[in-house]
Design a protein around this nucleic acid. Sequence first.
DNA 1: GCCCAGGTGGGTA
DNA 2: TACCCACATGGG
Length: 233
Amino acid sequence: MARLVLPRPSPTRRRLFRLYEALARRYGPQTWWLARSRFEAIVGAILTQDATGRNAELAIGRLRQARALEPQAIRRLPAGRLAELLRPSGTSRLKARRLGAYLEHLARRHRGDLDRMLRQPARDLRAELSAIPGVGPETADTILLYAAGRPVFVVDAYTRRILARHRLVGPGVSYASLQGLFAANLPRDPALFNEFHALLMRVGKEHCRTRPRCEGCPLRPDLRGRPPRLERR
DNA sequence: GCCCAGGTGGGTA
DNA sequence: TACCCACATGGG
């Protein structure tokens, strides 16, 4: 019987694995984004747009405190009151509109049935979400991964920055290419995607903000590449 | 007081 | 296509 010969993993795949292993060794398991419900994960996806996670959590806490962390309750709120509750997450009037647009869509298209919405094939769900004003690629993918549990890698500013600084991709790589890199080289496992993303966030916050401060970065030099260049926001 | 943050969409060349 | 900018609050 012929032996099964697995193809050698590509250099990119090996580097991606080493990156994950180095982060997992350094930080251990990340119990990250403890959304208490799928709806909360969706609200969080919108509120973290161009904001820190902490500020988004503050806003979610205010919604919960106001007993407004459910679709019908939010829809009943006057726009001004909703914006007031969302204030800590920044751009609150904008986010109140975006959350409202999502809820309007949920009510019209799915009669408010979140399970029905999230049951769809990933491709359909992504297309549907992307058509809602204020839902771009990252927000749609965040909902796919964290609310619908689909194996979709969320590409955010840290992912882009870290992979570019370690020369796994060029600085101007598109969202789709970067996402394709993970899809092509990792097992399609939502728990793994969640964990990897959380680890990238963790190291990014500590060592990889906009200004290049790689001092103390736990990643090995062979992953680190040459000194980074500044990128625009 | 200044700079920056887990994005998105509209405008302009 | 590629930039620029508004959106706005909270923290370092």
